[in-house]
Design a protein around this nucleic acid. Structure first.
Lengths: 241, 241
DNA sequence: CCAAAAGTGTTGGGAATACACCCATGC
DNA sequence: GCATGGGTGTATTCCCAACACTTTTGG
């Protein structure tokens, strides 16, 4: 065999987004176990090598399930990262040696996006600690995980533009139009008038008004709405363009 | 090492689009050399295993250069294909044995899109034969190459929507607005009125009218235009939405 | 009453669409 | 003249953004 051709391990890494109560995008980071590394340097994107009989999409589903305990999370492959030096940091090589009990000096990874309601119970079967980090407070991470996260931000924006309905994966089942507005604003960076946004959103027939309204707010209480995926799918209109 | 983890070869495959004079999208297919396979079954997407010190983007650039002789072709990674059985067909395994002189039974590939003016001279340093095939006349291909091509069609449409300017990679330097219209129609499937399209396109300041007009046509001759990338970049407007 | 946000109505401008009309060329 | 397509002008419609105004609630 020509020695020049790569023969390597392949992993998946998942960037899971959540939207917190301070209107910030958050990302789920897992803790990795490295004895002589300070705790605040032990965070990483959740990921795993893929099995020999496994497709990458299946591996990503597996990682997400091991991470959160949730089955069937929405997910989207977005890029393969294969810089020859992305895993050549000494402490990263050492960690892989511990984690996989083998010396690994190059590895390519397929990055995935996923979305999660931030109030959902996280029940990891694999990681001791799993925490939400606001995107602008993500620490320095191993490998090229910071780069992956940076690129995932433009990718989630594109995703929302392509399929507006996935935005509801980040909101509670009952939400106010202001919540949706703030999430959309955080994602789309073009500022829109909340009044017009309200009018437009509430005109969609798949945004169902509920009887329930906010409690204990020092202003007129906002109505809760829910998203109806079935109605949305029927009239595959362009929604917000 | 846990035997369950994949340790594999990684390749890139490139779907190169062209637009022919009958207003059809075409794809470049290369010929592979397999003695006892009929010639019409020897076509494949151009691709290659990646080198041990090579990033995937570099590998894709290399493949495209070996394929066409052109440097700096536009290119876009669009998906990693990793079905465990995508390379388990016997004749595919045999071909890989010949091509790479090693037994390979699983391989994952990273698929790229690229665009080429169909009149450009193709000067392959690697393949004996390289031919354009209209997308609806692509023969049955090895591995999952037909699947890759199918998915590349939705991807090129998305690409045009994201960045309209790349459409000019498929047209001659001098083109008529009708040519642009027919290409756009072939890609976007929503039918638009050519008159209004004409008006809109010619209003863009980066579409420069030339002195030259069509010759020997049995109707009023159309004007040629050219695309000015510099002007386009300056006012990054949304163009066609 | 005031502040803050919900929610509705009005209006004007710009873009997309439909379509009418004239121009140029070969047969 | 006629068919075909180039190219321009116009009217209408629709969407969007700006903004005014009313409603509701707590303090």
């Amino acid at each position: 065999m020509n020695q020049d051709f790569i023969h390597t391990y392949v992993s998946v890494d998942c960037v899971v987004f959540g939207f917190d109560h301070d209107n910030r995008l958050n990302i789920l980071l897992a803790q990795r176990h490295v004895d002589d590394v300070p705790v605040d340097r032990q965070r990483k994107l959740p990921g795993s090598l893929i099995f020999s009989n496994e497709d990458v999409d299946d591996a990503a589903h597996r990682v997400l399930h091991e991470l959160t305990g949730i089955k069937k999370m929405v997910l989207k492959q977005f890029k393969c990262f294969a810089d020859p030096f992305r895993a050549s940091n000494q402490s990263d090589i050492k960690w892989m040696g511990t984690e996989y009990m083998h010396h690994i000096d190059r590895i390519i990874t397929v990055a995935y996006l996923s979305l999660c309601k931030i109030d959902h119970k996280i029940n990891s079967t694999k990681y001791e600690t799993v925490d939400w980090y606001p995107v602008d407070q993500v620490p320095t991470l191993p490998f090229d995980h910071n780069k992956i996260i940076n690129e995932s931000l433009t990718e989630i924006r594109r995703w929302i533009e392509t399929d507006f309905s996935i935005i509801f994966e980040l909101l509670p089942k009952k939400f106010t139009i202001r919540q949706l507005y703030q999430l959309y604003s955080a994602l789309s960076e073009k500022q829109i008038d909340i009044k017009n946004f309200h009018k437009k959103i509430s005109s969609f027939n798949y945004i169902i008004p509920l009887e329930e309204i906010e409690q204990n707010v020092s202003h007129r209480a906002a109505r809760y709405y829910r998203f109806d995926a079935k109605i949305y799918k029927k009239n595959n209109t362009k929604l917000i363009k």
